[in-house]
Simulated assay, not measured.
Amino acid sequence: MGKALSIFIPTFVVVLIVNQMFYGFCFKSYCLSAAFPKVVVLSILVSFFIFFVSDSSNKE
C-alpha cells in the first residue's frame, strides 16, 4: 500500500499541473474543482501502469 501511494501522489501532482497547463495555468478553486475528477481518474490509470511495470521489472 505504501508503494502504491508513493507512486500515486507524485503522479497526481504531475497530472494536475499538466492538465492545468492546457487551461492557462488556472489554479483557482473553481478550476481545480472542475479538473479534480478527470485528474484523479487519469492519475489512477497512470499509477497502476507504473506500479505494474515496476513490479514486473523487479521480478525479472
Rank of each mutant, 00 (worst) to 15 (best):
M1A: 14
G2E: 13
K3Y: 09
K3V: 08
K3A: 10
S6T: 05
S6C: 08
S6W: 11
I7W: 01
I7R: 03
I7M: 05
F8L: 15
F8R: 01
I9Q: 01
I9E: 01
P10W: 02
V15W: 02
L16F: 10
I17D: 02
V18K: 06
N19L: 00
N19A: 05
N19Y: 15
Q20I: 05
Q20V: 05
Q20D: 03
M21H: 07
M21F: 13
F22D: 08
F22R: 11
Y23K: 05
Y23S: 13
G24F: 03
G24M: 06
G24L: 07
F25Q: 11
F25M: 14
C26V: 04
F27V: 03
K28F: 05
K28L: 09
S29K: 12
Y30T: 12
Y30S: 15
Y30E: 15
L32I: 08
S33A: 14
S33I: 13
S33C: 06
A34H: 13
A34G: 10
A35F: 01
F36V: 08
K38W: 02
V39R: 00
V39E: 04
V39P: 00
V39T: 07
V40P: 00
L42V: 08
L42H: 04
I44H: 01
I44P: 00
I44Q: 02
V46L: 15
V46F: 13
V46E: 08
S47D: 05
F48A: 14
F49P: 00
I50D: 04
F52Q: 06
V53W: 07
S54D: 10
D55T: 15
S56D: 06
S56M: 11
S57L: 14
S57T: 10
K59S: 07
E60F: 06
E60W: 15
